[in-house]
């Protein structure tokens, strides 16, 4: 059988940098270096593993983002994905999650798919809703937040570890899947993979290519608005003591003083 796998990835500001907002209260994507969202590496990994165990499987990586976002696609191609799609358009600036799902769903349909694989959330917005939104838009099953995933005989199965219970899920393809950081460590690109990725095709599409009206996306098309963003005042370091036999008692004293004991 053939299996068309589409992996959705996001280019995000490095979480170890000083992330901030721009004047229009959108995420500042200039002052901090960007990279493939760590949580999407797990999605790429699972897609590659599924592809590896299926004859005739092809993995396409799709991203929506500014020019530099192609780096995220390249990283996934270095890991082993076959080709990439980068949706880029100035009118996308400030698009919310609902709008992003509109664009991604259109790009996924244009690409053609049997299985869509996403990470559990982005490391910048951390909403974790995009896979569910894609399933709703594409009108296919959502099989999300999986710590284990397998595809066989036209169906996807997996384990979803929730707060109250662990669930075993099953759905027919086509379907949208998301995988957690518990799904298995992501591979590093090999030297060979890095060289091979240079020759892999990445198509760039704009909103016209997807027949999406500009005013349905971007800041004007967003259905929510950030009114203000305030940097949290840094926590001021408190009292630090070095344990010389009394550290436990000193800490207990602090807790008692503040009525925790």
């Amino acid at each position: 059988m053939s299996l068309r796998i589409v992996v959705c990835v996001k280019y995000v500001p490095d979480a170890s940098g000083d992330r901030a907002f721009t004047e229009d209260l959108t995420t500042d994507r200039e002052s901090v270096d960007g990279l493939l969202s760590e949580l999407d590496e797990y999605a790429v990994e699972q897609a590659l593993q599924i592809a590896g165990s299926t004859d005739g499987a092809e993995v396409t990586v799709v991203t929506v983002g500014p020019e530099d976002a192609e780096d995220a696609v390249r990283k996934a191609l270095q890991m082993g994905a076959d080709k990439g799609v980068h949706v880029e358009d100035d009118d996308l600036h400030g698009t919310d999650a609902l709008g992003t799902s509109l664009v991604l769903a259109a790009a996924i349909e244009k690409t053609g798919y049997d299985l869509v694989v996403c990470g559990m959330a982005s490391t910048d917005g951390v909403m974790g809703v995009l896979p569910a939104l894609l399933a709703e838009r594409l009108r296919v099953p959502q099989v999300t937040l999986l710590s284990e995933v397998a595809v066989a005989d036209g169906a996807v199965t997996g384990r979803r570890d929730g707060d109250a219970a662990s669930e075993q899920l099953s759905a027919s393809l086509p379907a949208v899947v998301s995988v957690t950081d518990q799904s298995g460590e992501a591979r590093y690109p090999s030297f060979k993979g890095i060289m091979a990725a240079k020759k892999k095709p990445v198509e760039t599409w704009d909103l016209d290519d997807l027949d999406i009206e500009a005013d349905t996306v971007g800041l004007t098309g967003a259905w929510s608005a950030v009114e203000d963003a305030t940097a949290r005042p840094p926590r001021t370091a408190g009292e630090i003591v070095t344990d010389e036999g009394e550290g436990g008692k000193q800490l207990a004293g602090y807790l008692a003083e503040h009525k925790f004991i």
């Binding site: 901030a20 910048d124 009114e227 963003a229 949290r232």
Partner: peptide
Amino acid sequence: VFAAGFTTRSRIT
């Protein structure tokens, strides 16, 4: 947001 580095206030439009 941003690892609790910022506090935002938002509304639905």
